[in-house]
Every structure is written in structure tokens, then in C-alpha cells.
Design a protein around this nucleic acid. Structure first.
Lengths: 231, 231
DNA sequence: CGAGCGTTTGAACAGCGTCAAAACAAGTGG
DNA sequence: CCACTTGTTTTGACGCTGTTCAAACGCTCG
């Protein structure tokens, strides 16, 4: 199913740049680009010449089917790396969810070839393995969970990531993005928000701001445990 | 929580091996274990001391929710590697779909540390990146596709993998496994089989043997292209 | 032959999608 | 400040896809 081997090890090592840590490279100044709301950062099947890291704002990655059905595979917040590929082409597209600044590193500077150094290679592997774990968790969500459970999982994940466990989470993305991420429609997402609010698990000061009122109950719903104790 | 995990049984303990290519190691004789149908190879959250490769038979990996809902994350056929983890624990469990022989390599022999050699590290990264791509494709399936489209995708993938594009695919797994892989129920899977057969896209000599009659139509269904010709 | 399992099929049901409209928010120009 | 616009979110009514519950069918193996 993969077409990687030939292309992956073949080309793209024209300039033997000094070995560079991905993290270091992405933190070096100078390669930062700004993107407007909904602006494309790279498209599906486009050459994967860069690896990206969110500096400010938020980014989404996803794939679309011919008839327009879209699956968002991930949201990326400041500090997150995205766009790292094994092959020569991006398998997913990426767009800015809102105004965003993104740092870039040339892929060729990363020594992806088989002879690259251990440090950078290990770093790449770590990033990819973490992405794999997230994606498998997401798979579980799409394959097994109900609409309310999906939304609960999503809100908890966002809360843990962006608000430093503060009580109010500010969602950078619209309902449609959430729907495409959770494998639901915009209407079902909205209804699930309302349901969680009715049940006093969350509060919605505005449609983009979510206050988590009962963390443990939301967590129980998200993980499909039996709900008993508080934490 | 099975005693039958690999670490418990008599996989020959080897001396600290010199740096080894994963592929080479998995092809070396001596570290092969046999498993019976539905036997656990390793459990969710168990120590990830080994990496595995299917020699004969078939293996499934997956995660379960507390209430029993299960998501199968992958099927593995002869030659496929599974059970490779970034951390110390397996995030998914693995079981034999049918009688299966599996080759093992001690994880410690792979030099996963940051100072490991470039070749093995690149190999690990490649394996993980391929798994990520497969998982994202699977995500698309679960998030966007209808029951018939899911089954069509699955059958085509199986056909490409195991039968060398011969016309008859022999499925090693039962309907329940397929259902849990596709995020459906066993009944819906069965009905979808019947539907594809009624529409003459496939033929079912037996419930486990699938003959693909109209590859291109099945492919169009699977990838959600516009379907022109009908049954 | 019968027991046990896996698969298929049927009928009723429900969760989520679809279609439609209303409520809401944020600009923009008068 | 207020109409008017445009885009987003919410809500309602209805229908379809897939689930649930149940039964029948077809294997394989004693």
C-alpha cells in the first residue's frame, strides 16, 4: 500500500547541510511565515519540502474525498510540529484555522537519508510515533464512540493542550472543523454542545469559549467508563 | 492480562547483540513463536519488550473501551511488522486471527536510544511512518465513508496485500473482526457483503473467500468517485 | 446425527444526517 | 446609531443508514 521506499531514500540529498536537530531548526529565527484564516499552507499530494511548526494561532490537517467529504486528521497549536512526511509528497493538506504564524525547516536539512545521524533520526521517529498514537486514539473515537462521547473527548483534549488546565477553553476552530474532525455533521456537533450544557457538564459563555464545569463527569463520558467517583 | 504473552514464554534469550537491522533480526531464525486462533500475543498496556513480524497466518491489533466496544486498528499478514512502540508499554493489544507464527526481536537489541545507529533508526522511522499513513487512511474511512464504501475499501486493500492481485481473496478473519475494523456491526458487514454480491461487484464462493468481479467499480465505490456504470 | 459456532436475513427501532428556518454575531455603509 | 449584509451557530421536523433484537441457515466436528 505504500510507495515509499524508492522515493524516500532516493532523491533529496543534494546539499549535505550540517546535521541539525529538528527542534533547534524550528526554533531558529528567520523562517517564519504568516497565514490568514483558512489559507492553505500546503495541499494534499504537494511536494513535502518542508516541515512545519506552529508559532502562534492554529492549524488543521486533513484529507478530502472527491465528492467533498472531508476528514480533519489533526489540529495543531503553538509548539506542535506538522507536515513531516516519509515520502516526497504530503498525504494530507494543511490550512490555517485562524491567523497563524508557522516556522519552516527545509526537509533536506534534516538528513532523512539512511545515513543521517542518530539524534535527528530519533527525533523524527519520536514525532511520528507520537502522531501515530494520537491517530490511533482518534481511530478509536471514530470507530466506537457516540456523538456526545466524541465531543467530550475533544473538549478534554483541547482543555489539556491549550488552557494549561484553566477552566475556560477558547476554541480557535468553527463548528464545521470540529464536525469534520469528529466525523459528525455541524448540526450534531451543535446539538451535542447544547446537550452537554443542559446536563451541566460545560457552560458556553460564547460559542467559541467552553467552560468545563464537571471535569470528571466529562472525562467519564469521554472514556466510556462507568461514572462514579470525582477527582 | 494473559500469561501467554511473549515475555512469559520461552523465546530464547540472546546475548546483547551488536547493532542490528530490524529487518535482518526479524529474518534470523530461532525467535519464532506459534499462536493459536484468538490467542493473545500481547495485551494493551503490557510492557513492550519485543517487536514482532508475522511469518505465517494473520494477526490483529486493537484497543477496547471499558464497556467492551472494540476497535481493531490493523490486520497483519506474513511479512508485516507490528508491536513497535515508542514508549515502554504497548498502546494496543495483539491477537492471532488464526493459527500464526510470529518472529520476535528484543526491543533492547534495536538501540532505540538517541545514540543508536542511523540505519536501524531510519528503519524504525520508516515503519512507523508507514503505519501512520495507513492509520490516517483508516481514519478517513471511519470518519467519512458509508458501510458499503468501507467494505469495498477493505476488500480492495486485502486483495492488493494478500493475493498478489489474483482474483480470489481468502479472508483469515471472521465477520466480527471485520466489523470492529470498519466501525460497523457484524450484521451491517454481512448485509454489505450481500449487497456487493447482489450488485455483482463480488462473488462469495464461501463466506471467507471473496472473488472480485468488477475491480474498477469496487474501486470507484471505495474511493468515492462518481460511479458511472451500474449493475 | 446433533451440537456448537459463525453467518445471513428479517423487522422494529434509534441515532445521526438532511433540509429548512430562525437566532445570533460582526461588520459595513448610510 | 441604525438598517443591511454576510457568515456562523442553534433549533426544529423528518427520513435514512445502520443498530438491535431475533430467528433461521449452514458449516464443521464430535
Amino acid at each position: 500500500m505504500q510507495v515509499q521506499s524508492a522515493s524516500a531514500t532516493g532523491a533529496r540529498r543534494s546539499q549535505p547541510i550540517t546535521l541539525v536537530s529538528l527542534t533547534d531548526a524550528l526554533e531558529a529565527p528567520g523562517f517564519v511565515m504568516g497565514f490568514g484564516r483558512n489559507e492553505e499552507i500546503f495541499g494534499e499530494e504537494q511536494p513535502a519540502d518542508f516541515v512545519y511548526r506552529v508559532v502562534t494561532g492554529a492549524v488543521r490537517t486533513g484529507r478530502i474525498l472527491r465528492d467533498g467529504r472531508r476528514q480533519i486528521t489533526g489540529f495543531f497549536l503553538p509548539g506542535d510540529v506538522f507536515g513531516l512526511e516519509l515520502g516526497e509528497l504530503h498525504r494530507s493538506g494543511a490550512e490555517a484555522v485562524c491567523e497563524a504564524e508557522v516556522a519552516l525547516v527545509r526537509r533536506s536539512a534534516l538528513k532523512l537519508s539512511a545515513t543521517g545521524d542518530g539524534l535527528a533520526a530519533h527525533e523524527l521517529w519520536t514525532l511520528t510515533a507520537e502522531a501515530l498514537d494520537r491517530t490511533e486514539t482518534h481511530l478509536m473515537l471514530l470507530g466506537c464512540k457516540t456523538a456526545a462521547e466524541r465531543l467530550a473527548s475533544f473538549l478534554l483534549a483541547m482543555a489539556e493542550r491549550c488552557s494549561g488546565r484553566g477552566r475556560v477553553v477558547d476554541l480557535p476552530m468553527c463548528r464545521q472543523d470540529i464536525a469534520d474532525y469528529l466525523g459528525l455533521t455541524i448540526e450534531t456537533v451543535s446539538r451535542s454542545f447544547s446537550q452537554l450544557e443542559r446536563e451541566r457538564l460545560i457552560e458556553l459563555p460564547s460559542s467559541r469559549a467552553v467552560m468545563i464545569r464537571r471535569w470528571e463527569a466529562l472525562s467519564a463520558l469521554a472514556t466510556a467508563e462507568d461514572l462514579q467517583s470525582a477527582a
